[in-house]
Each structure stands twice: as structure tokens, then as C-alpha cells.
Design a protein around this nucleic acid. Structure first.
Lengths: 122, 122
DNA sequence: CCGTTGCTTCGAAGAACATGAAGATAGACC
DNA sequence: GGTCTATCTTCATGTTCTTCGAAGCAACGG
């Protein structure tokens, strides 16, 4: 088996921590998404891209804000891309990355639904 | 004491992926929270505890739903506890765990604020 | 056509993590 | 008090992740 691309928005499954006890498959898909975000570098990358003018940034803008080598930034970008959280587009010399809004919202929804239910229960 | 307890609700920092470009410290704290959730076992653990009657469950109820050994479940419970996502209380023979609602909401807020801003921008 | 710049992939070293086996602790029951 | 069950804590091991350097494509300018 090669490298399977686990995307958050794959089957648009409404996986959440509430309701049904969450089967192993849903848990694995959700965990893959959180794992992509569970890194300070990737979190800042996401933040930097989102905060940039126009909602998109080229890699040269990103590497400037870190004390990491180019290949390392590229690696984290790839992880984010394979998780379906960002999308890259080549325009001339530079490649511009932008955040995919739906993926972030899906991840947040799994958490908020659980938090909401808990508040109601409490 | 080398092992520092990284709790999501530590300094109630309003860290989010939006607004300021997210400094290294905030990113690290946020990443620690997501890392605790970035595991299928812990995600299901969280789901199981939340879905249980009364919002709390003892370890014996939890281990039944997994193909993992007791110590392994205990380990994941410890990670969740140190991240401030759950709290355990001993009542007689069993220890009952319950989900801390605020921590989950804090994590979700960091994602939702970013997703919301992106939708508005788009 | 050739050199430069931007970004990615390949390969590898080191650290961190998940898991299980064995031992230790806390409470319940006789 | 003694023993049993339930849970937690080390310790060891195999796997995965992070990071870097070197090499490989793609686009621009001479």
C-alpha cells in the first residue's frame, strides 16, 4: 500500500463527537485532520496564509517568518495540502497557497457540537 | 520536574488563527491541544465519555470498547487529562472521567474564527 | 542556450509517540 | 488483617514524525 491521501472533506461525513459513539473509521478520518493541525509550524503557516492580503501567500512570504529550512516548510505545506486544508496554485514564478474554508469548518464542527451538547447536559 | 502540564485553558489566551499572525507561543499551546485530539483512540475515548449516561464513565466502561490493553487506555486518558480536556474523579472502586466543556470549545473557537473570517473574505 | 531563482522530492539522522508487560498503589470485601 | 479487583506507573520496543542537506523540475532573464 502506498501513501493514501486522507482528506477531511472526503466523503463529507458528518462525523462528530456527539450522538453515536463514533466508530473507528470516523475517528481515524477526524484524527488525520487534527494531526495535520497539531503542529505549531503548520498552525502558524495556516495563520500566515489566512492573514495575508487576499487570503493567499506564496512560499517565499512564508519561509521568511520561520527559522526553518525551505524543504521543511515545503514538507509542512504538503501535509496541509494532502489533508485538504490548503490548495496551491502556480501563477508564473510563484506558487500561491490559500486556505480551504470548508475543511477548517468541518474540523471545528466536530468539536463545537460536542462542546455544545456538554454545556446543555451540564 | 521536567514534565510540564500544558493545559488548553491555562491562561485563557484567546489564541486564534485569525487576526494577528499567531506567535510561536500561542501556536505551541494550541498545537498541544490539537495533538491530544489527533489520535483515533483519544477521539473515541472523548466521544464515549461524552455519550455515556450522565456525561461520565469509568475506565472499565471505556476499555470494553477497544482492542487495546488497560495500560494503553490509561496512557491515553493521562494525555487527555494533562491537556485539560477531561477530569477524573475517584468514587469508591472506580474512577469516573468527564469531559471539560471549556477546553473543547476553546479549541473549536480557534478553528471557527478562522473559517468564519475566510468565508467573509471569500 | 545557459544561469539564476523558487519550490519540490529524495534520503537519512534524531526525537517523540503508541503500545504492551511487569510492578506498584488504592479501595472493597471477608 | 488478608486478599482480591481496579487503576496507575515505570520500563522497553517498534513505529512514526520532524528536520535537514542534496538533488531534481519549472519559470524567468540574459
Amino acid at each position: 500500500m502506498s501513501k493514501q491521501e486522507l482528506s477531511i472533506v472526503d466523503g463529507c461525513a458528518p462525523a462528530a463527537l456527539t450522538g453515536p459513539p463514533l466508530g473507528p473509521e470516523d475517528a481515524a478520518g477526524l484524527a488525520a485532520g487534527f494531526k495535520a493541525v497539531a503542529d505549531p509550524t503548520r498552525l502558524r503557516l495556516l495563520s500566515l496564509i489566512g492573514a495575508h492580503a487576499g487570503g493567499e501567500a506564496c512560499v517565499c512570504d512564508l519561509t521568511a517568518g520561520f527559522d526553518l529550512s525551505g524543504p521543511t516548510i515545503s514538507h509542512h505545506l504538503k501535509v496541509l495540502r494532502e489533508a485538504g486544508l490548503i490548495s496551491g496554485e502556480r501563477r508564473g514564478t510563484w506558487i500561491y497557497y490559500r486556505v480551504v474554508p470548508g475543511a477548517l469548518a468541518t474540523l471545528a464542527a466536530a468539536l463545537t457540537s460536542a462542546a455544545h451538547e456538554l454545556e446543555v447536559t451540564a
